[in-house]
Structure formats: C-alpha cells, structure tokens
Design a protein around this nucleic acid. Sequence first.
DNA 1: CGATTAAGGGAAAACCTTTTCTCAACTGAG
DNA 2: CTCAGTTGAGAAAAGGTTTTCCCTTAATCG
Lengths: 347, 347
Amino acid sequence: MASDDQPVPVFPKPVTLRDVAAQAGVSVATASKALNDQGRMTAETRERIRETARGLGFRPNSLAQSLLRRRSFTVGLLTNDTYGRFSLPLMSGISDALVDAGVSVFLCHVEEDPRLGQLHVEAMLDKRVDGIIATGKRIDRHLPVDLSNLRVPVIYAFTQPDPDAVAFVSDDGGGARLAIEHFRRLGRKRIAHVTGPASFAVVHERARAYRAVLAETGLPVIEPLLGAWSEAWGHEAVARLFDGSGERPDAVFCGNDQIARGVIDALRERGLGVPDDVGVIGFDNWEIVAEATRPPLTSVDMNLAALGREAGLTLLSLVGGKPATPGIRKLPCRLVVRQSCGRLPDG
Amino acid sequence: MASDDQPVPVFPKPVTLRDVAAQAGVSVATASKALNDQGRMTAETRERIRETARGLGFRPNSLAQSLLRRRSFTVGLLTNDTYGRFSLPLMSGISDALVDAGVSVFLCHVEEDPRLGQLHVEAMLDKRVDGIIATGKRIDRHLPVDLSNLRVPVIYAFTQPDPDAVAFVSDDGGGARLAIEHFRRLGRKRIAHVTGPASFAVVHERARAYRAVLAETGLPVIEPLLGAWSEAWGHEAVARLFDGSGERPDAVFCGNDQIARGVIDALRERGLGVPDDVGVIGFDNWEIVAEATRPPLTSVDMNLAALGREAGLTLLSLVGGKPATPGIRKLPCRLVVRQSCGRLPDG
DNA sequence: CGATTAAGGGAAAACCTTTTCTCAACTGAG
DNA sequence: CTCAGTTGAGAAAAGGTTTTCCCTTAATCG
C-alpha cells in the first residue's frame, strides 16, 4: 500500500480522428475530409464534424501525416557555434520564414567530433527532416560533417559550402566598405584596420575592401593589423598604432566588437577620447557588447536574421521541388550607428 | 528545351524494410526481427539479413517507429532566452543526458508573444514529443506559455515552475556563499555586494546569503546595492561605494559578470588595482566575458550543463512512467577562480 | 513408425491519417 | 417510368515498422 499513495500522473490518451468520427457518427474518411475542406458533403455534416473535433480537442497526429506525405515539416539546423552568437539570430530568421509554412526548426549542435556529428545528421535523416541548413562559427570554416550526397536538400548559411551547394553569406567586403565610407564622410583622414587572424578568408576580404575604398578616395592606407578576435589583441594593436613616431590614426575599423572594445579601452588609457580624438567602428553588432561599450559602439551588422530568412525560404522552395542554382549568394550588411564613430561637426 | 537543361537534383528513394526483406528473400516480419534481435531464426539467416541491410544502407524510418511506439524519442526545449546564454549550455547538458537513450532535443524559441508561444507548444505536441523542458532567462521568471495540464511530462529548468511541477534551479544562495567565503579566506575585510534589480528573487536570495556569511564571520555588512544587470550599473555602483568618506571596500561581489566588468573598469579609472587593492568576483561565469576581462574574472558558475543533464535524466524517467516528486531541486554552484579576486599572500 | 515438441519463418493487425475509388440514393429530363 | 448525371458518404489502400499469433517443417522420443 505504501507504494500506492504516490499519485502517478496519468496522461490522457490523445484523441484520434477515429474518436471524432465515432462521436460524430461518420466514417474516418468523412471526418478527415470535413476537417481538411476536401471531398463533398453537406455543409451541415461538415460543420457538425468540425464542432465535434473542437469539442474533443482533436489535433491530428503529425507523425501519421508525415508518414503519409513523406515529409516531416521539420528542418534541421546544424551548427557548431557553442555560444549561439551567430546561430541563434540565424535560427530566429529561419523560424520566421518557415512558421507560415507550418515547418519547425530542429537545432542540432555538433561538437568538433566528426563521428558524433555524423550521428546527429543520421538521426535527423531518420526523422525525415525535409532539409538541412548548415551553419558555423565563421563564414569560411567547414562544419566537421560531410553533407554532400544527402537524401535531402542542404543549404549553407554563414559557413563554407560544399561545391555545387547553395549558400548564403554576408557580404563582408561590402560591410567593410560601409564602415570606411562612413568614416570618410565624417571627415576622418587616417583610418586604421585592426582585425582577426590571417587564416580567415573574411579577414582578407575586408582588408581588400578597406584598401580599395581608401585608394578610391585618396586617403592613406595603413597596413592592416592582423591578430586575434579578442579584446586583448585590440588593446595590443593600439599600442602598435599609437606608439610609433609617425602620424596617428583618427579612426579604427575593427574586425569584431570585442577587438573594438579592447581598442576603446586602450585609447582611454592613453587619454585619447572616443569618438572625439579617434573614431571606432566594430563588426558583428553583437548587441550585448556593442551597447555596453562606452561610448556605445557603432558596428557593422551582418543581418543574420535576414540571412536566415532567405536560407529558409530557399530551402522551402528546394523542398517543393523547384531547383535552385548552386553558388554563393552574398547578402548586404548594414551599419548600425551608435556613438563611437563620431558625427558630422555640423550634424 | 531551355527549361530542360537545369538539372533538377533528384533525391534517391529511401530504402525500406520491405526492400531489405525482398532482397534477402524473407518477409518484412523476419527482417524486422533480425535487425532488432527479436524472434527466433538461425544465426545464419539473421546475419544474412543484416548484411543485406548494411549493403542497402537501410535506416529505419523513425516516423513509422514513433507512430507505432507512440513515442517520438524527441523532447522539446522551450526557451525565451534570445541570446542563448543560459539555454545553450543547458541544452548541451540535456543532449548529453539523452543521446544515450537515442533521444534528440528540439530547441524552440518562444518570443514574448503568448499566442505564438502556445502555437509552438501545440506544434511540439502534435509532433508527439515525449516531454518538454522549459527554461527562461532567469530563475524567477515565468515563460509566457501555459504548460500545466499538458499531455506530456514537463520539467522546468532555470525558470519559475508551475506549482506541483518538477524543477531544477541553481543554488544561488550557495553560490553567493562560495564567493563571500572565498574572499574571507583571502583575508578581505570589507566586502561589498553590487547586484541586479529588486524585482528578481535571486537578488534577494544572494543578498541574504551575503549577509549571513558576513554575520557568521563578524565582518561588517555593507548594504547591498541593487540596480541593473549592466556594466553601466557596475560603473555607477563603484562611484557610490568609493566616493563617500567612509572606509572603502576591499572586495566586491557582483550579481553578474557584466556588472563585474563595469566595476573593474571603474576601479581602474580611479587608479585602484584589481586584485591588489580591490578583489572582484562575478556571477554566471559567462566565459566569453569573464576571460576577456582584465584581469580575468573569478566568477560563480551555475553549472548549467549539469543542471541540464539532471533535467534530462529526470524527464526521461518521467517518460518511462516513474513518478517524480514535485518540487524545486537546487543544484550547487561552483567558483571558477581566475585572477580578479587575488590570492593568498603566502600562496 | 507415429506422435509430440521445438524451431524457423510468415501473415496480419496495429499505429493514425489521407486519398482514391466505389456505391447507393436521389434529382431532373425525356 | 427510365436513364443519365449528380450528390453524399463509406471502404480500402497507402505510408513503414513492430509484434502477436499461427503454420509448416524438422527433430526427438517412445
């Protein structure tokens, strides 16, 4: 008896179409058609069945539907971005694009272990996901998983695609251009660039844009400083830029917001004011950092949610059988202006 | 013709158990039993069927299995934590606990809109998730969704549970105790506490622990400063603590890592060294912040992955039919010692 | 050698929904 | 009154797997 007084929560049996049909006094076929606006029957019958379904709280079993339609109305989002800094905004955009089609998103975090990753992919395929979106920590890094020759369409977003795949990435060169041109419009003359390690493709792409804009406008190019994606590197880079005897920068374009943060801290320690003496622009627009910086950081936003939306819509049309031409599509960045870059004297 | 040269990628038909059976020359029933180690047959037959399945690359259709077993081997993780700062570590712990049971996790982000949230929950139920784990931004905040009386078991992790539910939260009081006692062991005499807004239950819980430890050890209590969860507030709080004429703190225990960061910056601006003049300990151990702080921040870690693991295991046993006594279970925090708190003089 | 038992394997139902096909009844026209 | 055509609704198959029950054959025992 002692083991009996623990109330075992009993979960009610889900109500099936059969139950609805029985209660309404029709066959399951008719019930199904009534609820899906299919087939022919009197408006009265249709309404009666619907009313019964509502009353019973009937919800169709997606599993059964999926089995029949050979689609699960689910897509998998594969990522190895531990902190979700890039994958969560992306996911939010994807969900956004898919929710109207009744499709949900399955976030699947794959560690660096390729075996475990492959396992997760298999699990998704077994669950008959309609498609997979792959994303990573950085645009030019591969996921530790092989996604070629899968049974479902694959889209790459913000990560290095396989050849012949469809991919969406941000236009980092354009983003850099945005930042530098903004500095130029504000009248900055000596614009430096502090960025991440040479092993990242985007580092070179942005540096190219940096040089190009400066060349176009006749401003001097300061050799970009390549280092790490960290605050500490931003700090150190300021020492390199400002310790020399040469003319000093009046603006720094940084490869990410953490570097920018380190730059700003270092400038303050040197008694240089931001934005009055030196303007600073970051990259990523990681709000939680950009807004906490003093002064709040102007930063290039990669529009990850929009990227996710595009990826989602494209995947959807791929699932629908419409072919998509493979290749990399670049989506524009936008500049989020806060206070670290300064403003026009007359503004 | 022009529309014909676009190669439409054709995805191979998945191979079914029927295919395996046909190729092996047995019935589907036998094939199924062979692959699942059920039924009786010669070892030779079993092996032959397995070999055929391997050769064909057969993978059972989870949808069909789930339909039959009335379980999807999927659990939903519901969150409204936009940046994933808390939900991702949690999810990683949950996945960890469930992967051995072959269960995957469905991350579902519900915005503040309750209607959309309810919609997502319905979608998960329709997909026949085995259970749901709810989590939020902060321990004492409700999700904008009603999860009572669902058809599946629900576990709350790091969010305010419904009454009679099973919940796991971190022991914030214990975490505070850890920090203060560490300061005391290091010989700090005047320990201040700068924390978040009064509207959070954990703020009071930690403040209680703060007072308790100080009272136990005979150290003076400085009235905790309640403000916001931001760097700016940490900055401002330093002004309040150090501008007065009274004796100054030699240690500050902060409500989160961002506050700690603001505190450290403000101290540096005042010419006070961390940890030599003032020790600082944060809360959350958000590595990306804690490690970037100069000096690297000692912080209380809430062990979210462990929390997730516990939640996952408990949900699993609930799904298995074993009852769990409702109530809130607190899991211990741990102190991650870096350099901002100082060390023993003789250490 | 006949009868019993065990072993090996198959048929069919079940899970739940959708869809096509079929069928009965009824309408209106000739 | 008969026939074509329409309307309303049900039967059945399909989707892929698991499991129970049954049947056949071979082996064992008396």
